[in-house]
């Protein structure tokens, strides 16, 4: 039976909760159990929606002693000392066993162009820290291409590409070998097989987007994909385990 590691999970109180949507950590754990999701890479809602530093601290509290969650911090380049500098970020991540970062450039209002990301991305590259962001947060395919092609040594996990993005996604994946696709909302008919056939199963990472995304839908998408068992294992957990094992903080 497939075991999954979820590469996109949000903990904490968020501003908007839809009807029937999971809210608490125990709601999320129930779904993880139902869907055979062993662990989840989690960031905190406050770090996205409000105070980034406070949200990252809340994540540490929320996940203290809990082996089901792999810590992820939200981050951004420091402007006028607003957020910690890249070297300090790396030190703090090491200290608190945080192994990846998530960017929200659109939500947090900064550019992903190299002139703005500069030293921040250089440090992430040196430390082999995987960088996560959603498709919509990049603003445009050109922005995404600029970011990915400027830092080819950084592995970017781009999630939430919808079923309408194939024509934009394909040339990006072809040009940028450091683009790994989060599977959560990639619901192109036969899309998982398509990516495996063209680019290889190594280029996909399982994620759910819990609690706003569906874990049951996400696991069914992989389990029913017309690909080999070995490819499913890579997508479900193998690829993300490889990336996290390579982190050098």
């Amino acid at each position: 039976m497939l075991n999954f590691i979820d590469a996109r999970c949000q903990l904490g109180r968020r501003g908007i909760v839809r009807e029937g949507e999971p809210v608490t950590k125990s709601d999320i754990l129930e779904l993880m159990d139902r869907c055979s999701i062993e662990k989840a890479i989690a960031y905190h809602a406050m770090a996205k929606e409000g105070d980034m530093k406070a949200g990252n601290d809340l994540l540490l509290q929320e996940t203290e002693g809990d082996e089901r969650f792999i810590r992820q911090w939200c981050a951004m380049p420091s402007t006028f000392g607003e957020f910690m500098g890249a070297e300090e970020l790396a030190e703090q991540m090491k200290k608190h066993h945080v192994s990846s970062i998530r960017l929200f450039p659109k939500t947090h209002g900064y550019s992903v162009k190299p002139y703005a990301m500069g030293k921040f991305m250089d440090v992430m590259a040196q430390c082999h820290v995987p960088v996560f962001l959603t498709y919509a947060e990049c603003g445009s395919e050109d922005n995404l291409y600029s970011l990915l092609s400027s830092y080819p040594e950084v592995n970017f996990i781009i999630s939430d590409a919808s079923y309408r993005e194939n024509r934009k996604l394909f040339p990006l994946m072809e040009q940028c070998k450091n683009l790994l696709l989060g599977t959560g909302n990639f619901v192109v008919h036969g899309g998982v097989k398509l990516i495996c056939d063209y680019f290889g199963a190594e280029r996909m990472i399982f994620d759910t987007g819990l609690p706003m995304g569906s874990a049951t839908a996400a696991v069914a998408l992989i389990c029913y994909a017309e690909i080999s068992e070995e490819e499913k294992q890579l997508i479900a957990h193998g690829n993300i385990e490889r990336l996290l094992a390579d982190v050098k903080l």
């Binding site: 139902r34 869907c35 079923y163 619901v187 192109v188 008919h189 036969g190 899309g191 569906s214 049951t216 839908a217 996400a218 696991v219 069914a220 998408l221 389990c223 029913y224 994909a225």
Partner: peptide, 17 residues
């Protein structure tokens, strides 16, 4: 809504509800 998009995820969503 298949084949506008995949159907396995909706199938799973109902079956595993």
């Amino acid at each position: 809504d298949f084949i506008t998009f995949e159907c396995s995820h909706i199938l799973g969503r109902v079956a595993m509800s």
